[in-house]
Amino acid sequence: MILWLLKRLLQAVLVMVAMSIIVFVGLNVIGNPVDILISPDADQAERLRVIAELGLDQPLVWQYVEFLKAALQGDLGNSYVFNQPALQVILQRMPATLELAVIAVGFATLVGLPLGLYAGLRSQSWLAKFLMAGSILGFSLPTFWIGLMLIMVFAVQLGWLPSGGRGETASLFGLQWSFLTADGWRHLLLPALNLSLFKMALIMRLTRAGVREVLPQDYIRYARARGLTEQRVISLHVLKNIMIPIVTVIGIEFGSVIAFSVVTETIFAWPGMGKLIIDSINVLDRPIIVAYLLLIVVVFVWINFAVDVVYTLLDPRVRLGQKGSAR
């Protein structure tokens, strides 16, 4: 177990190093941030001054080594645009994205799982067939279009909910959160729903497939033969056995919402990390991009780690870090 943990940590560090190199080299190839940061009519002396200030006159390898040295001390450089530490800029935006992601994934699970259970248990009923057909829409309709439709209907036509922004926030752990206020919730609802539709469809289909697979198993027949109530058979014996793929998907989706909720954040003018990264890419704000990508790697590593731990809780046959002898 400890060995497994160490291996995991080493893997994470390697991924982060590889990621930073890729990003560093890649960014160096595309364009020069100086062109964007300085007004075109600045003179040559001014240009050189800025270049030297940003350290862009050094060779790439040297820039990278400098970056690594600073990074090890927790300094990922200053944003060219905001003139603040990059990490700080990102962390300021993080709560917005985090709460949106948690609510979207939570919503997808809370709705998708029961609907999937129903569709699996009563696969012949018209409601189940309707749900399955509906889930195809959840997959195939583009997020941006659904987002626009949600705004059209609920914000513009009905006027029930605001069309964008975070609304009123309250402070917790020194950070600003929308989910602590009623107005924040009103602002959260539409973007969270928009983000969760795809995941909801995914979880629903996965749950249904799992139920269909587990129901004919001997242990379910045996559980019924022991006179257990149907409710107990479903909620304990079926559910725990289908959770592994679902937990995997929830983990992956949670990560991807945090990292790539760009479209939704843009449409709903949600001041999260997704919007920040797009803006930073537009102006080639290298420290922000690098810091952001490294942070995302950390988030993914942690989610995968949590998912693996959950596996062992769900299925005792899964043993971390132990390889069976291959025959």
Binding site: Y219, Y222, A225, H237, P316, R317
Partner: peptide
């Protein structure tokens, strides 16, 4: 009335 099946019928994820 109790039933027994082939011995693989115990739910693998419960003790």
């Amino acid at each position: 009335i109790a039933m027994i099946f082939q011995e693989t019928s115990l739910n693998p994820v419960y003790t």
